[in-house]
């Protein structure tokens, strides 16, 4: 046990560095995905077929294929069309587009639960379409979808581990590098698993706190 702790403490700085990159990628993807997902959600709810159909196709594509395949396509296809971006940008872009499709579905559910009455009332009071959406619909909808949103954040945090295969040095990649030098796969990978579990536990606790906090005001 002592030897195990010594081994981990020797590498804890590197692991923590990897974890910070993991958090950074996950947070960027979730926030950008939130904006894209909201836009997509209104596209899915649009009355116009030519807005709705492409949005549906986009969503079906990103929800229906493995995220690993999506990462590979974005990473290897971008240079083909002349965009030579660093691996970490390609990775964040792929995760963002993936989560935007899932978040759009979450928001769509929230909007449908909210009903049409609020929006109609706001319109009658002379509030514009976008101000009504941004100031009336979205804030209420976020309270409804908070639990699903926390789940999606956890799943994106877990999916960042896949980014390691396109050579982004986040937590998973860092632990692979450590194992490559000392061959202690079991010890290092279990430590990495513990770090992931800790991050996700903090996330779900924060989610539960936010749920209580926002439920109290209603």
């Amino acid at each position: 046990m002592l030897e195990y702790l010594e081994l981990i403490s020797e590498h804890i700085d590197t692991l923590m560095y990897g974890a910070s990159i993991t958090v950074m990628i996950a947070v960027t993807a979730i926030l950008l995905g939130m904006a894209l997902g909201l836009a997509l959600c209104f596209g899915l709810l649009s009355r116009h077929r030519w807005i709705r159909r492409p949005c549906l196709a986009y969503q079906s594509l990103w929800r229906g294929t493995p995220i690993l395949v999506q990462l590979l396509i974005v990473f290897y296809a971008l240079p083909v069309i002349g965009l030579d971006v660093p691996a970490i940008v390609a990775a964040t872009a792929a995760l963002t587009m993936n989560t935007s499709a899932f978040q759009a579905e979450i928001y769509r559910g929230g909007m449908l639960t909210l009903g049409h009455g609020q929006f109609e009332a706001a319109r009658i009071l002379g509030i514009g379409v976008w101000p009504a959406r941004i100031r009336i619909l979205i804030p209420q909808m976020f309270r409804l979808v908070l639990p699903s949103l926390v789940n999606e954040t956890i799943s994106i945090l877990k999916n960042t581990s896949l980014v390691s295969i396109i050579a982004v040095t986040e937590l998973m990649r860092v632990s692979q590098q450590i194992v490559a030098t000392n061959y202690r796969a079991l010890e290092i990978y279990t430590a990495t698993a513990v770090i992931y579990i800790l991050m996700n536990t903090v996330l779900s606790m924060a989610g539960r706190y936010a749920e209580r906090r926002f439920a109290a005001t209603s």
Partner: peptide, 19 residues
């Protein structure tokens, strides 16, 4: 539910032989 499946596969595949 808290760990990525990739890390679980690595523990089994690369860590397994250690035990």
């Amino acid at each position: 539910r808290g760990t990525p499946i990739l890390i679980l596969l690595f523990i089994l595949y690369y860590g397994g032989p250690e035990i």
